[in-house]
Amino acid sequence: MSTASGELRTTRQRWWGRQPIGTLFALPYLVFVLAIFAYPLGFAVYIAFHDYYFTAPGVDVPKPFVGFDNFAAVLTDPQVLEAFRNIGVFLVINVPLTVVLSLVLATALNAGIRWAAAYRIAFYVPYLTASVSLVGVWMLLFSSGGLVNAVLGPLAPDPSWLVSSTLAMPTIALFVTWKQLGFYILLYLAALQSVPRELHESAETDGANAWQRFRNVTVPGVRATTVLVLVLAIITGANLFTEPYLLTNGGGPDGASVTPVLLIYQRGIQQQNPDTAAAIGMLLVIVVGVLSLAANRINRER
């Protein structure tokens, strides 16, 4: 009798685990993730491959499978191509600036400096502050009659920063570099603590100067973090929405700062074409994935 119930107990334990109540504890989170992430993820793929449109509630119209039609439409749309090109311009400016500045500033901070906490706060606060607030401030600073142009005087660009088709995207790239830098500095600070001090010391005894030590000890020592910084900067850059929406007044001038996410919003929600919007979303994820893999690759090969 007791062995039988003992056996039953072990089978039950093997299936439900030793504390089956854990399933109940984790259940709200599981339901949340399935409903808010997993299901919409599948739904996004479904929408992208169907002729999907919004209907009045309760009306059920066929939404036929159309294969790659939405992708074909998106890939031949000059505005979509321009949005991806704009992201390219953004990344070419933002990514190198981010990596170089955050590593240099983190190295300077790490060298045992007075008021390190105050510097850290100054660098970090823009990262924590709402984009909408900071965009408002930058918009005023960089407007035609703004403070930046007043300081530059005759050197001020004409047309001004945010209304110039060549400068709009670079200005956004500068803004995002400024806003995000503090976070990357913290990542590098954490990584720098794990670079062994002896390496620096022995390089110094071998007569390496500060630049040589930075180049040959610090940079290789934080390589794994550099990959992380690259990938995160690429993801952030690919997901731009608030900046072109507000800073350049909806991707202006004339689409020069339009981004894929801004297009997803305009196509999917304003113009009610969720199918092409979902296709742009999938393309964006593929592009980000490929770029992240490439960043990882380049770093491994060196």
Binding site: F37, P40, A44, I264, Y265, G268, A278
Partner: peptide, 18 residues
């Protein structure tokens, strides 16, 4: 781990519909 990897922007349209 999956949640950490899925960008919100991809989910924007389906979540909005849902």
């Amino acid at each position: 781990l999956l949640v950490q990897m899925v960008p919100f922007q991809l989910l924007m349209i389906p979540l909005y519909v849902q």
